[in-house]
Design a protein around this nucleic acid. Structure first.
Lengths: 115, 115
DNA sequence: CAGCATCCCGTACGATACTG
DNA sequence: CAGTATCGTACGGGATGCTG
């Protein structure tokens, strides 16, 4: 059954994961989109993710689009409006990222560097 | 019950997480230590985490030590031996990282960039 | 408003050589 | 074996200015 057998030989999925979420803002943006669930405008997203620049936000969103984690909808209106929404694939990461967020909340005190 | 209330205002735990796992090798190393559970020698760890250099491995291990995620044990022997082991705090990340690894295995096919 | 183009800097990371 | 030291490059990512 080829159980990837290891316990000591296959760190690869994690390497792939790092490919996807590398970058200072990747996880915060993605999690914001997951939590929001509904379409959200570019500027709104930027406000939500604190001091991120347009450049970085745009770059990450493009990457997420390529990965099919986010959809981009452009409304051909006079004041341009673009909305982003998490895909079902992206939403499927929610339990995992929730768990991650919980872990952080519970343990950020233990992670002190003051020794 | 104060369910962290937001749904739209607190991406902070994720920002903290990024601090901890930033770096190309952080997650792969940490996960390897978690899966291994037992003490593991420096050279063994380096072999397990594929083409990582000593420099980078050392740097990450030092950071994990500071964060109390890993312990370092030096044996004053003639051929120097140093063993690293995940701490209980580090182990408590296992379910989350397992979930992450599972998600990657299930979806790495969906994450194609070929569109 | 959304986002591309440009400039610029810090540092993450790799390769190599040296030490206890 | 398990590091430290040094060097050089590539890339991440911030700031600013310009366009449809």
């Amino acid at each position: 059954m080829r159980p990837s057998s290891d316990t000591a030989q296959d760190p690869c999925p994690m390497v792939s994961f790092v490919q996807i979420i590398s970058g200072k803002w990747a996880i915060p943006i993605l999690y914001r989109l997951i939590v929001t669930a509904n379409p959200i405008r570019f500027s709104e997203l930027q406000r939500a993710v604190h001091p991120i620049t347009q450049k970085e936000l745009t770059k990450q969103l493009r990457l997420f689009e390529q990965r099919h984690l986010v959809t981009r909808r452009v409304y051909p209106e006079v004041p341009p409006r673009v909305e982003y929404q998490i895909t079902p694939l992206g939403q499927s990461l929610k339990p995992t990222l929730d768990s991650l967020a919980d872990w952080m909340r519970q343990h950020q005190h233990d992670l002190t560097t003051d020794d």
